[in-house]
Design a protein around this nucleic acid. Sequence first.
RNA 1: GCCAAUGUAGCUCAGUCGGUAGAGCAAUUCAUUCGUAAUGAAUAGGUCGUCGGUUCGAUUCCGACCAUUGGCUCCA
Length: 608
Amino acid sequence: MEDGFDEANPSTIYKNQGGLRFVATVINWGKLKMSKFPLDTIRHSAAHIMAAAVRELFPDVKFDIGPSTDDGFYYDFDMEHRLAPEDLEKIEEAMIKLVNKRLPFEYSEVTRAEAEALFKGLGQTYKLERLADIPEGDKITLYKCGNFVDLCRGPHVENSGQTGAFKLLSLAGSYYRGKEINPMLQRIYGTAFPEKKDLNEYLRKIEEAKKRDHRKLGKELELFSTSDQVGAGLILWHPKGAFIRNTIETFWKSEHYKNGYELMYTPHIGKAELWQTSGHLDFYKESMYSPMEIDEVDYYTKPMNCPFHIQIYKSRVRSYRELPLRWAELGTVYRYEKSGVLYGLLRVRGFTQDDAHIICTPEQIESEIAEVLRFSLHIWKSFGFKEIKAYLATRPAKSVGAPERWEQALVSLEKAVKQAGLDVEIDEGGGAFYGPKIDLKIKDAIGREWQTTTIQFDFNLPERFDMSYIGEDGQKHQPYMVHRALLGSLERFFGILIEHYAGAFPLWLAPVQVMVIPITDKHHEYGMSILKALKEKGIRAEIDCRPETMGSKIKDARNQRIHYMAIAGDKELESKTVSVRSRREDQLGEMSVDALIQKIQSDIDNKI
RNA sequence: GCCAAUGUAGCUCAGUCGGUAGAGCAAUUCAUUCGUAAUGAAUAGGUCGUCGGUUCGAUUCCGACCAUUGGCUCCA
């Protein structure tokens, strides 16, 4: 009978604390079937049940909030007990008991004073603070399920039996109100679905994502690693990963040359004065590494390439006749990232941007932007990504640059996006202080979105570096400058690529395209001749001459995600053929080596 | 950076309530010469993340650090 709770008559709860009355939430939903409750209602209700269960197990708990999310729900708690993974099972068990009781969700509209009295009485300090956030005049509603009452705007399901199939997934720390200076609360993540099969499908998806995890595949396929001795967030590209990177870079470079770019190389460090002029030491210093002293002058490792490109621009007087300049560089930069945010290839401390700067006249800006976008989509298509969404970020409150420039920039960005036929979302005021931008998000094979391409105007650096060109009128003018990265960084892109293809790269990127498998050592010689024929045609082939069974060699080649296996035994030796197996289609039967070569070359050409 | 967890052979993991450790896979050697997802046997392989403390003795207990994992914050 905690808190005056009467099991037989739940509605009597808290009557002693302000005489609050609760009514069932049944009205909200009428006769809806459980599966008809909105997903977020089910999840939010599950969060309440979880909170109620936590309260039973740890009575001293203080509650913060417990919303539904895109994938499920969470609830933030503050308590003496440090939650451990074993606790999740106990909490789930307690939840199931509450579910089986089919306790009604009941709500009550109360006055601020009533709510304050209630939460003060319960010692729920976070709830009191959350209560204070509710604007004067707004309704204050409480939802109660069993002996757990929560400040909540609802809605909820009718009773605890309707929270569907749920599962608690993980524990995490989380700052109160998401602010670093606030105390860290304990968060439990879970998810819920109307039906068990939906939950299972979701859990299967998590498993699928785990299988594709680039950190796991990177190790298994020997693509990359990091080393404690080198340092966190610094990537070592192993031969196979480096091969793929080189293939990406070669393609990237040739496409850039074909599309009107020029490529450059610039140093990894630059004097403090350069970064002073660029403003990085004022605005970006916390992401830069400590300087090194050379001949009594401080030099910084570069976090960006732009100041160097600008120096090339400024190496002589520029005429309007040479604009637009499209200058690209695979520039390796180093940025300090907090230790806790490092994540495989996706968040690192040293990375190579596929950077470019477009320097042009105001008249050229619109077509230049359209062209960058077109080029970007072409590149994405080449790597097998087809679903792309654009995000347009406009002028923030604090910003530099003439209003008419911002206006023109936005118009050209909008036009370009429209022309490219992309779905676009506007992020009002989300631009950088130095200019508006378009970001592209690409969707991978299992539907996850990744932010990659960014196209950013910069009204700051041309000013700071006093960039100019001589116009038709013989006068000095300030050019427009646009930064853009298509793949983002090679590290991050490689991580995305690994997950997109689950390690099974398209043939043109695959480090090994064919594995020749002689059945016994009688066939080694013939196998070697096949290997030679393939290599002569520039096909990346290897041969497996280990004294293993054919089945074992096939298994290993498959695990290495090798596209084609060319099996050579007595039959093939006699008919001068190979028996071909593909990763995708299993057995393709016997064919001549020439036929295999043709097949492979056609796959490569089609970027399959 | 913060909260929590983890760190044992190349990989995946077991184990030691304090007496310097074990499996499977991989590797090596030998045997097997095989027809479309694992042939068999033997051998070798570990400062138990690093440094310090407690102890007769530490991989085990304690502390610091490093790294990793799940989140939070951050990512102009």
